[in-house]
Simulated assay, not measured.
Amino acid sequence: MREEFCMSEELIPSLDKSTSEVAWNLYRKAIRKGTWDPAAIDLSQDKADFESLDGDLKGYLIHFCTGFLDAEENVALKFCPWIMLGSTTEEQAFLSTQLLEEFKHTEFFMRYFSEVLGRERIRGVKNTVQQKLDERAKQMLDALEAGPEEREAALVEGLTHYQGIIEGVQAMTGYDVFQAVYGNRGLFPGLAEGFARIKEDEGRHVGFGLRMLKLLARNPKHAKRIRAIYDEYLPFILIRYDQPVIVDGREIPTPPEVNGRERLTKLFDRRLKDIFGSLVNN
């Protein structure tokens, strides 16, 4: 099963309803459909597949899964300010489901390292956009003590940074990379199932975030800041696939199917169109 979340008409909830209605509907959808258990996914074939791989494809998978584990864990530990800045009970209810889901995604990759890869994650995988979440979370917490304009401005930046860029560009690129490198070979059905479940969760996260940004961008001040963050972070996004892949002191060649820079820039442009429509000025 492969869902194309990059199409805005499928991803962004309708603008016909109020934000509170949309948030509550997504909250209820998360309750109905977000109840998958990371511990229930069968990883036995994945372990066999991993043991049969050549060294380069093993190394790239370790690097690749490290990036996901680092990212999921990082946001799980820092996401509370996004919930707290929600302006209604309905918005906070939906955003609270994202916090639970980020911990579930973290659990899945922790289990994957333990049961399939049989090792700890590696160190040194660069993801500057993720690393900047420390500063972003502090900024959003500070805004809780400010007035409504400052709170809204902080939420705009938080939604752009996380739902718009990290989930909307980086993570969704990663799903396509997995499919191109491993899924098309019929490898790792457990990881494929995990990604399908995570994509379903993050489709709700990204869809809500983009819908909020689309509405907030009607304010020229917010629109300018959204675009500035996207442009500021583009070089950092590209680092994810431009960096050398080093595993246990050995440089691993990047599989030719990755095409990371091309995939990232395509989704980057798609997200700007989702938010600004035909008014995007590249």
Rank of each mutant, 00 (worst) to 15 (best):
G194S: 07
T265E: 15
A180R: 11
E51W: 09
W36K: 07
G34A: 05
Y27C: 04
S20N: 07
G164L: 00
N281Y: 09
L11D: 02
V245C: 09
Q179F: 11
R227D: 15
R197E: 11
F113L: 08
G186T: 05
L187A: 03
M7F: 14
A171C: 04
P189F: 06
F208M: 03
D176A: 13
S87T: 12
A93V: 00
I237Q: 13
I83R: 04
T106A: 11
R227L: 12
G190M: 02
A48L: 14
R240C: 02
E232C: 00
V156A: 05
S278T: 14
I275T: 08
D49L: 09
Q130C: 13
A180S: 14
Y233E: 15
E200F: 13
G203I: 01
E115H: 13
Y27W: 13
H63G: 07
S87I: 00
E91N: 06
R270P: 00
Y112R: 07
T89H: 10
G209A: 07
W36D: 08
A48T: 14
L215E: 12
L187T: 04
S18Y: 03
Y233K: 12
I83Q: 06
I226C: 04
L272R: 12
V156F: 04
A146K: 15
D49Y: 11
I165W: 06
S44A: 11
E3C: 04
P253T: 07
L43Q: 10
E251S: 14
Q163W: 06
P255C: 08
V245A: 03
D248L: 06
H105R: 04
K126S: 14
G147L: 07
E102D: 15
G55W: 03
P220D: 07
L155C: 01
L57H: 14
A153S: 14
E101T: 06
R136H: 10
G118K: 09
Q98D: 03
G183W: 08
E202R: 06
L216A: 09
N127M: 12
E152V: 02
D248V: 05
E135I: 01
F178A: 03
E102P: 02
M1E: 13
G147Y: 08
P38L: 06
L69N: 06
E90H: 07
K224A: 15
R136Q: 15
K47A: 12
N282K: 15
W36R: 03
K33W: 11
G147R: 07
H222W: 06
L117D: 10
S96D: 10
L279G: 05
A154N: 03
F109G: 05
F109K: 04
